[in-house]
């Protein structure tokens, strides 16, 4: 299967701080990649580089054959193909749930509002929130907000979905509803890069797991390899902390 995402020798400095140090990684089409690691390991930075929320200091990223560059039009085009879900949901509080989902398709993809509305209804049903159509984000629980956020990203019909610690800000009883949606998405063949601490999800959905620390990839492997026979000492230590 072809590479959907190709990251080559990615470096990112914040002043003297090296957030990413020569990271190279590929994600095949339809693959679900889970990235784990301690805070400050650069995993968020890596994820955000894929949709150019962060600009690399050096190195290259390709989405299919599209190079992620510094050109404005190119960046916007890439972002139409790459969807992102944030830890803090970041729903637009002044718009209803339906309007949140419809906004970008209408404004960016120039869809007619009725078409966007149809798609929104479809996606809401898919994430299990059909009846929350006209609700405002302020009226939803954390888990519901995140599911709306996922629907909003999916409304753009992306080739890739990026998840930046999607359940870290949720109360424990709401984590499952979000992970279920993500699992569903993975099984449906979406190419996904997920930064998370939820090892259960990694075991169930990941094709590969990557461990990052201090801006570098330390170890890579299938979930079974990782959780039963991790080779690197730092990986083992980290897993011991969280499992």
């Amino acid at each position: 299967m072809p590479d959907r995402i190709r990251i080559e020798k990615a470096c990112k400095h914040f002043g003297t701080l090296k957030a990413l140090n020569n990271v190279s990684l590929s994600v095949r089409a339809g693959e679900t990649l889970v990235i784990i690691g301690p805070s400050g390991s650069g995993k968020s930075t890596l994820l955000r580089s894929v949709n150019r929320l962060e600009a690399l200091s050096s190195g290259d990223i390709w989405i299919d054959d599209d190079h992620v560059s510094n050109d404005g039009a190119n960046i916007r085009r890439i972002r139409e193909e790459v969807g992102m879900v944030f830890q803090d949901f970041n729903l637009f509080p002044h718009l209803t749930v339906a309007q949140n989902i419809e906004l970008a398709p209408v404004r960016v993809k120039k869809l007619k509002r009725s078409q966007a509305r149809e798609r929104a209804v479809e996606l809401l049903a898919r994430v299990g929130l059909a009846e929350k159509h006209d609700a405002l984000p302020g009226q939803l629980s954390g888990g519901q907000k995140q599911r709306v956020a996922i629907a909003r990203a999916l409304a753009m019909d992306p080739k890739v979905m990026l998840f930046d610690e999607p359940t870290s800000a949720l109360d424990p009883e709401m984590v499952k509803e979000v992970l279920d949606v993500m699992l569903d998405l993975a099984k449906g063949g979406m190419t996904m890069m997920v930064v998370t601490h939820e090892m259960g999800f990694a075991r169930a959905a990941a094709d590969r797991v990557v461990f990052m620390d201090q801006g570098e990839i330390i170890e890579e492997g299938t979930p079974e390899q990782f959780f039963t026979a991790a080779r690197n000492e730092r990986t083992v230590k980290f897993l011991a902390h969280i499992l």
Binding site: R52, L53, A55, N70, D71, G72, I75
Partner: peptide, 9 residues
Amino acid sequence: FENPDRRTR
């Protein structure tokens, strides 16, 4: 204006 593209920069 964070991480501006080339033209914006």
